[in-house]
């Protein structure tokens, strides 16, 4: 009897220990196939001369990387990517927080407003980009027309660097603010109401409660949103690609982002080796940015909560 009971006990213990891993394994198997393998394969491609059609060529070591790093367009694309990322992510998160706070208060027809902020997210990014690039036309665009009404000279949206970044960031913000606001709203509703009541009794105003209670309580969510928008922001593609009819990021590469540059290398120049090298560098850049952002926000927010 005794050994059998021991066997059963061991089985139970093994079940407890191993089963959770078995349950989550489908994700990791799938991830291995569609995530990890391509990642490794891209690294392999990046070490070779490799043409879109012709396929694998000679092994060249890190030459693709040094080639790309030696191209001014790579650095230009990196600069543009960071600039568009900052112009989109920073206002996006701040505005989303404010909208969430507004939606969290007592509103009439609450569901209507909440659905309303999500609407832009439902639209296809390409459709948004088509409409916005029409609005931001240099000569006959609506935005310049409106600026003209208040006496401002037309802005060269497709010619100058910063205006083009602002226009593209506007599309990104239009699409993502509502989505992020809803995530913030969900987190805000989980904040225990006692805190607010206590603060009210202590005589704190609206702004004070927002800064001292809401924001610290939302820390985890804010970190999540910042990290995901970092990843999305650094990979921005649809909007700059659709911003003019050529899709290469402007005649002087004013708004060519890293993904556009990658696309141009891979599909216009058919140089897969270099494109794969850019893909890997983009990956590393995103990881670095995500870690920096994560550490920064954790720092700032935990200071606030203590």
């Amino acid at each position: 009897m005794a050994p059998r009971a021991a066997w059963r006990r061991r089985l139970t213990r093994a079940d407890e220990k191993a089963s959770p891993y078995a349950y989550i394994s489908p994700f990791f198997i799938l991830f291995g196939v569609v995530g990890l393998f391509p990642l490794g394969y891209t690294a392999w491609v990046s070490l070779h001369k490799w043409s879109l059609i012709g396929g694998q060529g000679a092994f060249v070591g890190l030459k693709n990387y040094t080639d790309v790093l030696g191209q001014p367009y790579f650095w230009n694309a990196l600069k543009n990517t960071v600039s568009i990322f900052l112009l989109s992510s920073v206002p996006q998160i701040i505005i989303a927080l404010l909208i969430a706070a507004a939606l969290d208060s007592n509103l009439r027809a609450r569901t209507f407003w909440r659905m309303g902020v999500l609407l832009p997210y439902v639209l296809a990014p390409v459709a948004v980009a088509l409409i916005f690039s029409d609005l931001f036309g240099d000569k006959f665009g609506l935005v310049n027309h409106l600026l003209g009404l208040v006496g401002i000279d037309p802005v060269q949206w497709h010619k100058e660097v910063l205006p083009s970044h602002v226009a593209i960031a506007t599309m990104v913000n239009f699409r993502w603010i509502g989505y992020n606001a809803l995530i913030f709203l969900a987190a805000m509703q989980a904040v225990p109401r006692d805190y607010y009541e206590a603060a009210l009794i202590d005589g704190a105003g609206r702004v004070r409660t927002f800064i001292s209670i809401t924001i610290p309580q939302l820390r985890a969510t804010i970190i999540f949103v910042i990290v995901t928008s970092t990843i999305g922001g650094l990979q921005i593609f649809d909007e700059p690609r659709m911003y003019d009819q050529y899709g290469l990021g402007g005649a002087d590469r004013q708004w060519q982002t890293l993904t556009l540059y990658l696309y141009q290398l891979g599909w216009t120049q058919k140089n897969f080796g270099r494109a794969a090298a850019v893909a890997w560098m983009l990956f590393l850049i995103i990881v670095i940015f995500a870690i920096i952002n994560f550490l920064l926000t954790r720092r700032i927010a935990s200071k606030g909560s203590r």
């Binding site: 569609v34 891209t42 990956f283 995103i286 990881v287």
Partner: peptide, 19 residues
């Protein structure tokens, strides 16, 4: 952990289309 996983997936997807 998720951020790294997400970043990996995201770049992986890019790589996949490349391949």
């Amino acid at each position: 952990a998720r951020s790294v996983a997400l970043a990996t997936i995201a770049v992986g997807a890019l790589a996949l289309t490349a391949c």
